[in-house]
């Protein structure tokens, strides 16, 4: 395709082609701090194409295509090119990843140990991981945690953090400088979105796996509380948050049961970021 960029995020390499220069230019800027991948065969190919030939020029919109596709995916306006690329990469992972057990989760690390946060959409796992990433934790990803079935280690997928609605202002105030942010995208299917580049440490160490140490199920909008959860419920929740658990068959089952047996799990309720961070630090200290 006319415009293209190769991106490596953790152990996964993407080849992204675009019919327009714009999305590739913005991706280049957003991902400028990432290592340029060596020449290698990528894991996935992604195409950002007009949904019909006319749509390249007139009210241009982007269809998300690639190695793995969903027939009912809605096209996005050209101005949302960065979001289209993010969704396209997520889709390849969700439908095509076979090497790692995939958990729909955010993840941060400290002292070689990983804190994995998973929950329903809107539970705040993305925002929480962004907060912790600015407070001495290494950010490892806000979308997927990759569990290696052979070692049980968690590998990061630290692509640009997709901040939504109120989280945009909060993180802009916290980070201060503007040069780690992507363009502000308004009126997307998920509201207002702005991408935040992970800190230098997160990018420099993105190849370092970590040992899962705590599974957290956060829930937003309730008075602060910590609850324990039984192993069976943890297992069921994780099968629901994994997009490839069934496809991996026996190795997926082994990886997941091992994770549930070896890693403590807690559910937390919180009202605001401050209470969530306090609960996380308290739990982490109790574990040590």
């Amino acid at each position: 395709m006319k415009h293209q960029i190769h991106l490596r995020i953790g152990p996964i390499m993407f080849r992204i082609g675009s019919a327009w220069a714009g999305p590739v230019k913005r991706l280049n800027r957003l991902y400028q701090a990432y290592p340029r991948p060596l020449v290698a065969v990528p894991n996935f190919t992604v195409r950002l194409e007009p949904s019909s030939p006319l749509r390249r020029w007139i009210r241009p919109n982007i269809d998300i295509r690639g190695d793995f596709m969903l027939p009912e995916a809605q096209p996005l306006p050209l101005a949302h090119g960065v979001l289209a690329a993010e969704m396209a990469m997520n889709l390849q992972m969700a439908l095509g990843q076979r090497r790692y057990l995939l958990l729909h989760a955010s993840m941060v690390e400290r002292d070689g140990k990983a804190l994995i946060m998973t929950g329903l959409s809107g539970a705040g796992k993305s925002t929480l991981s962004a907060h912790l990433g600015e407070r001495g934790w290494r950010f490892m990803g806000d979308e997927f945690a990759l569990i290696d079935p052979n070692t049980g280690h968690a590998h990061g997928f630290p692509r640009a953090i997709s901040l939504k609605n109120e989280a945009v202002d909060v993180m802009q105030t916290l980070v201060g400088t503007d040069d780690r942010f992507g363009p502000l995208l308004t009126d997307t299917p998920k509201g207002t979105i702005r991408h935040l580049m992970p800190g230098p440490d997160a990018i420099a160490r993105m190849d370092e796996p970590a040992r899962p140490a705590l599974l957290l199920f956060p829930r937003f909008g309730h008075p602060p509380a910590i609850r324990s959860i039984g192993a069976a419920e943890v297992f069921m929740r994780l099968t629901q948050s994994s997009t490839n658990y069934i496809t991996l068959g026996e190795s997926g089952f082994r990886a997941l049961t091992q994770l549930v047996h070896q890693v403590p799990a807690r559910a937390i309720d919180y009202e605001d970021s401050a209470s969530a961070i306090a609960l996380v630090e308290q739990l982490w200290a109790d574990l040590a």
Partner: peptide, 21 residues
């Protein structure tokens, strides 16, 4: 075949085993 290709083909074998089952 190159290492990266070997891994891609291995992914295909895993997907294939599942599809055939």
């Amino acid at each position: 075949v190159p290492e990266a290709v070997r891994r891609r083909l291995n992914d295909a074998r895993i997907a294939l085993a599942h599809a055939q089952t």
